[in-house]
């Protein structure tokens, strides 16, 4: 089971946090700090798996992390998860983010926090891994986007609406109205 997923930058500033086990607010901050402390010391060529600190559960829990440019993606898992599998999961997550937001960077995680959480929920729910196939996840996320846009309706894009109205060529439309065939009166014979 995955206990927590943390994303923080090179300075220890958390960009995204998701805990699958209840921790109080200050505990969460403490966990982030501790994890940052553990992970930042490590060179890039050393092992990506660490024993967890005591806050998050002690020696049973492992910390699996990956370092991309300015961000650390850290998954805290217990012994039932395979380390290499989780490593791959991190990769899938990051690639999905990259596909959804072009050139994803730290600020994207802050700005599109809802979308990031949607993507994460597609992959991990309640600490259990649901989906690891990137195309599948992307399909679902795109579907969700479409639904959002539809629901937003015309108010969401007044510019679009305005331009749609402008382009509506009313005179032409009137000319194009086809009247139904009416029986001609002239044909009546007395």
């Amino acid at each position: 089971m995955i206990k927590a997923i943390l994303v923080f930058n090179n300075h220890g500033k958390p960009r995204m946090m998701k805990f699958y086990q209840y921790y109080a607010e200050d505990m969460q901050q403490q966990i982030v700090r501790e994890t940052f402390h553990l992970v930042s010391k490590r060179d890039d060529s050393v092992c990506n798996f660490l024993e967890g600190g005591t806050l998050i559960g002690g020696s049973d829990f492992k910390i699996i992390y990956r370092h991309y440019a300015t961000l650390y993606f850290v998954f805290c898992v217990d012994s039932s998860e395979s380390e290499l599998g989780i490593l791959d999961l991190i990769q899938v997550f990051v690639e999905t983010l990259d596909k959804c937001f072009e050139n994803v960077c730290e600020l994207d995680l802050i700005f599109h926090v809802d979308k990031v959480h949607y993507i994460l929920s597609e992959m991990v729910m309640g600490g259990m891994v649901l989906e690891t196939n990137m195309t599948e996840i992307l399909t679902r996320v795109n579907e969700q986007d479409k639904i959002e846009k539809e629901e937003a309706g015309i108010t969401a894009a007044p510019a679009r609406a305005v331009s749609a109205v402008k382009e509506m060529n009313l005179p032409q439309k009137i000319k194009d109205i086809k009247l139904p065939e009416l029986p001609s009166i002239g044909g009546l014979k007395f």
């Binding site: 300015t70 050139n103 960077c105 730290e106 600020l107 994207d108 802050i110 700005f111």
Partner: peptide, 9 residues
């Protein structure tokens, strides 16, 4: 608010 490389909020 924040600026990183080629992105800014």
């Amino acid at each position: 608010v924040e600026k990183i490389d080629a992105t800014a909020s």
